[in-house]
Design a protein around this nucleic acid. Structure first.
Lengths: 187, 187
DNA sequence: CTCCCATAGTCAACTAATTGAATAGGTGCG
DNA sequence: CGCACCTATTCAATTAGTTGACTATGGGAG
């Protein structure tokens, strides 16, 4: 699967530990490739075995040891080849809330409303985190300047995708709430 | 997993064969729960065994026999309970193109451009199919009237979500193309 | 007349993902 | 002082998902 390439792409930003990668996959990468720490550690194992990344153990004073991973030239090459060919599989989404919305009836509109509100809170939290990541990337520069001058614009573009996605999500939630209100004007 | 509930939700629309379900999961459901025909057939097997759906064999003249599946009362009840509780797992997205964008460098902007164009064509195709599904659902009524009067509005709301998602996708692609153009003005 | 596509599935082998717990020191809060 | 949370992983068991081929029949294109 392409978790492999997602990990390699994350390591383009520089050396990282499994733990750090799991943070990245929880924030910016979450938006296009979901995965758990366990998956990452397994994948890193495999990538090391295949010579696409290199690990070095860093001994720490007040914390557990960690392994820091770096891309090898072979890993960089493999990723480059991947990035140039068309996707093999179409975008897959798994969103439980949408199943619930699909299945809802007029029996319990309050429950549905609560679920949608929860999603909105979650989306707002994500947008706040994305905003921080964006500030860090831009580092004072304007977007226009960044896109012209930055070394690599990929991370910024995927971040914009994440932001747009969550904003759209929020707008959709508003519409759902409006539709629910129309049905049960006195809830 | 909730493929189970996705299938039950699909059967709320009425009796269907595995084959028909696989069509539904290729168009409207694709937008929030991806799955292949093989998965569906296995899931239907399981649901039948657990008494949540019922199957009847329909013999056909000029086609292979098929099994038509219906929700049982137990299945309906199970789905109802599912629809009222909060999602267990966060939304998961798997989008290879975004990995490629994340990883892209300035070495081959033409390749990236081609991938984005491909995605746009795909999104436009999806929007066209969604528009047809929408027409069929509305069946001449205005959206407002539909949302007030229709028996179940869930399928319409998830469809709106799919449409909004693809439109946003298209806008994002435009932005990516613009950024690429800025970097290589004479491509 | 042949080949491909649509219908309507099934089977087997494999790979990937999820769940839940375990390890182990440090830090912060009341 | 105890509990929860952060760092930083690892393990085992189970479940889910993917890939590719196989069975059948009919219809339409060339």
């Amino acid at each position: 699967m392409s978790l492999k390439y997602a990990v390699l792409a994350a390591l383009l930003e520089g050396e990282a530990s499994g733990y750090e990668l799991s943070k990245v996959f929880d924030v910016s990468f979450a938006n296009f490739w979901a995965s758990t720490p366990q998956q990452l550690y397994r994948e890193l194992e495999r990538l090391t075995r295949d010579g696409l990344v290199e690990a070095r153990v860093v001994r720490q004073e007040r914390r557990p040891d960690k392994r820091m991973f770096t891309l090898t030239e072979a890993g960089r090459e493999d990723l480059r080849a991947f990035a140039a060919e068309p996707p093999r599989r179409p975008t897959a989404i798994r969103d439980e809330l949408l199943i619930k919305i699909q299945a809802m009836d007029d029996a319990d509109p309050e429950a549905t409303r609560a679920l949608v509100e929860e999603r909105m809170a979650w989306a707002r939290g994500k947008l706040a985190r994305y905003a921080r990541v964006r500030e860090r990337l831009l580092d004072g520069r304007s977007e226009e300047r960044y896109l012209r001058e930055a070394d690599r614009i990929g991370p910024y573009l995927t971040l914009l995708g994440g932001i747009a996605f969550e904003e759209e999500n929020l707008r959709w939630c508003e519409r759902v709430l409006a539709a629910l209100r129309q049905r049960t004007p006195r809830g």
